[in-house]
């Protein structure tokens, strides 16, 4: 059997995400099992939710025996950013996207998968998305299970170093378009500045779950107002 090229490219692009997820979900597994949840519950949460901040907050609330409505509202607020990401991604999808494929791909829209998918040149195919989603899901669920069963199998300094993998990947995505386009660099710098303000100024701690969406809306908003792109101009498609 010959594997589809788009699918393989998706798998490759998913490796750094999977590595990053392994270490993040490992930490999630440890936290959740320390709180008293069994490994199969933690694995189930990771498999069905596939989101970091939302799960951590959800598990905290479950352990505190919080009312279900509070769990629902928290999940909604923390994850509402995915709506913006899906909306942005759907703009790049081709005509091959049937309803079934859209329903499947929707499951795998995370911050990182969205980020990698959106920097693909041209149209995004469903096979690329399947490949891109597969390894991160495996990494996310298996990291959770490993963390739940035995938090001390992997040496801690390796786990700590692995958690930088995902940020390294982000930087590899951001830097090249910033070299080409001043507008892109401007948006990134504004976003970083707001992110740092929210991170370092104590009064903003209470809205830290909103940080990504606040940064995205303000920075991309200012960028769009100051540097609207002409009809068919697309910075990712510029020849190098």
């Amino acid at each position: 059997m010959k594997l589809d090229k788009d699918f393989v490219n998706g798998l490759k692009a998913g490796i750094p995400i999977a590595l990053g997820y392994l270490s993040v979900s490992f930490a999630f597994g440890i936290t959740a099992s320390n709180g008293g949840l069994p490994a199969w519950i933690n694995g189930l949460i990771s498999l069905t939710n596939l989101t970091s901040a939302g799960q951590v907050a959800g598990v905290q609330l479950i352990l505190e025996k919080a009312p279900i409505i509070s769990i629902a509202i928290t999940t909604f607020i923390i994850n509402i950013r995915y709506m913006l990401m899906s909306l942005s991604l759907v703009q790049k999808m081709g005509k091959d996207m049937t309803l079934k494929r859209r329903l499947l791909i929707s499951y795998g829209i995370t911050d990182e998968i969205f980020a990698v998918a959106s920097q693909q040149k041209g149209i995004i195919t469903h096979k690329f998305m399947y490949g891109l989603i597969l390894l991160p899901v495996i990494g996310w669920v298996s990291g959770t299970l490993i963390g739940s069963f035995a938090g001390n199998i992997l040496p801690m300094d390796l786990v700590a170093a692995l958690s930088v993998a995902i940020y390294g990947m982000f930087i590899a995505i951001i830097v090249p378009p910033c070299k080409q386009s001043f507008a892109c660099m401007f948006v990134v710098i504004i976003s970083i500045a707001i992110s740092c303000l929210l991170y370092y100024i104590p009064i903003f701690k209470s809205i830290s779950n909103w940080s990504i969406i606040i940064c995205a809306v303000i920075a991309a908003g200012i960028g769009a107002l100051l540097f609207p792109k002409k009809a068919d101009e697309d910075m990712e498609d510029n020849p190098e």
Partner: peptide
């Protein structure tokens, strides 16, 4: 074009916000 530009800029803004300053505190 404004909405389209906004959506095009979103990924870069999201990536910047996710990476900084977290990368500095992600390891030991």
């Amino acid at each position: 074009i404004y909405i389209k530009s906004f959506l095009d800029y979103v990924p870069y803004a999201v990536l910047g916000a996710m990476t900084f300053p977290e990368i500095l505190y992600s390891t030991s």
